Amino acid sequence: MKTSRFLAAAAAIILVAGGAIWYIVNDYYANQPKQQQQADVVMYKNEGCSCCERWANYMQDNGYTVNSINAENLYALKAEEGISQNLGSCHTAIVGDYVVEGHVPAEDIKRLLREQPDAKGLVVPGMPESSPGMNTALNKPYDVLLLKNDGSTEVFAQH
């Protein structure tokens, strides 16, 4: 009889301790700062644009999931996202809460998501020959610009 009471008490203690440990571990992980997840990319482009598809493949090679959408009115989308004509390129993407215009390198997008600046996003105006997806020239320098909320820009990265 004493053995059965002992076993019942031990089982109860183990059950309560296990529940407490589960609660502590679960609470610990729930209260950790959220790491920025690799955001999916929604890319709007004109149908048949091969350099856009090359950029999408490049992004996929860098761990992103890309949803490519043929836009009926790409210029309207650019205007809605605050991309002026002088900053435009052949495609406009949405990554997380940011707009990404043109052939922006994956490492710059990762930095944008990590730092989370108060801005609209990143732009690579035009179609620089050595940018990802273009790949028609090597080592031709170009800038990636941070597009601020007021529409102004500053250099975010140089390649």
Results as ranks from 00 to 15, higher is better:
Thr3Gly: 07
Ala10Ser: 10
Leu113Val: 04
Asp118Met: 00
Leu113Met: 03
Asn62Glu: 05
Ala76Gln: 11
Gly96Arg: 03
Val41Pro: 02
Gly63Gln: 04
His159Ala: 07
Ala76Phe: 07
Asn26Val: 15
Val100Ala: 00
His91Lys: 04
Leu146Ala: 01
Leu77Val: 04
Val25Gly: 12
Met134Trp: 07
Trp22Asn: 14
Leu138Ala: 11
Thr3Met: 09
Tyr58Ile: 14
Cys51Leu: 08
Val41Gly: 01
Gly121Asn: 01
Asp27Ile: 15
Val155Tyr: 06
Gln60Phe: 11
Ser68Ile: 15
Ala119Asp: 01
Asp97Phe: 06
Cys52Arg: 03
Gly102Cys: 02
Asp108Met: 03
Gly88Glu: 08
Val95Asp: 01
Gln35Ser: 11
Val100Ser: 01
Gly96Lys: 02
Tyr75Asp: 11
Leu113Phe: 02
Ser131Gly: 05
Leu147Cys: 07
Asp143Phe: 09
Met134Gln: 07
Ile14Gln: 10
Ile69Gln: 05
Lys45Ile: 12
Trp22Glu: 14
Pro125Tyr: 04
Asp40Arg: 13
Gln60Trp: 08
His103Met: 05
Lys148Arg: 10
Ala71Tyr: 03
Lys120Asp: 01
Lys45Tyr: 11
Asp150Arg: 09
Ala93Ser: 06
Val144Pro: 02
Ser4Gln: 08
Ile94Asn: 03
Gln85Asn: 11
Tyr44Asp: 05
Gly18Lys: 09
Asn67Pro: 06
Phe156His: 09
Glu115Tyr: 00
Glu47Ile: 15
Arg114Ser: 05
Ile69Trp: 08
Ile69Phe: 07
Leu146Cys: 04
Asp61Lys: 13
Asp61Leu: 13
Asp108Phe: 02
Asp143Lys: 11
Gln116Pro: 00
Met127Phe: 08
Thr136Ala: 07
Leu146Met: 07
Thr65Val: 14
Gly88Asp: 06
Tyr23Val: 15
Leu87Val: 10
